[in-house]
Amino acid sequence: MANRRVLIKRRDAVRNIHKITRTMQMIANVRFQAAFKRAVASKPYTEKLAKLVDDLARAAKGIDHPLMRQPEEGGVSVLMVITSTRGLCGGYNHNVLRTAGEHLKSLEAGGERVELQMVGKKGVAYLKFAGWPMDREITDIGETPRFDEIEPLANEMMERFTRGEIRSVDVVYMKFVSTGKQIPVVERLLPLTGLESENAEVAPAVAEVQYEFSPDPHELLNELLPATVRIALFQAFSDAVVSEQVSRMVAMTAATEAAEDIIKRLTQQYNRARQTAITMELLDIVGGANALS
């Protein structure tokens, strides 16, 4: 019967999709593990750097650095949004873009000029479709962001910041908390904040080490702070990649399960249709035989 053929066709189609989503899920899983490993590998550097800044800030008796000063007047606020290059990762890009949109509105409501820098093809495509102007599109950073790709971006921001062209830099990305939790966050890259408040609390607990400094603590700090900014931006990019792969894994697992459900239902429908057809045929035969006798 026509109905049965249609059911078989549809089931085959769903089976194909099932195969694809399952493969994508496995690929995302592998990529997630690789990205996670990379993100973890940068931990020792970040932690050590933070500790050094802490020690130095104490030795230098407070910090005053161009990167920490809030400019008085003028300059634009840079908003950098990190989205993915590929789709099929559930609500990942949507969540990032929504958070970015809210932050953008609040910045503009505060009367600031905003320079929008969009990272990732998906975000660029979305804004183009929405007819929203972007000041910069960055689509050449792949799924394994390397430090030497991020470094120039951070350096450029710091240079423009010290020149007074920009008054703040915010990065919107998906922060990786755990495999079950990723949250879109707005992080302030520049001006640097939160360095002094932290070490004020730790100071009494840790015994002071008499370091031999070369060059003096102030100059060391001048070098360390830009490094902190660079690593913060790098971390944002690595986190974004990890979160993206998790989102894709989750989305593809859900799709695979949904496909399995549909296959089951279609098989049931097909069997039922087949049984109905057989019964009908039997009834026909029995009816015919009865009519003859």
């Binding site: 031999e212 400094f213 070369s214 060059p215 060391l220």
Partner: peptide, 15 residues
């Protein structure tokens, strides 16, 4: 310039 380090060196922080 170069700095040589052996065990037991005093705490050092350098660029």
């Amino acid at each position: 310039g170069e700095i040589g380090i052996l065990r037991g060196r005093a705490p050092l922080l350098c660029k």
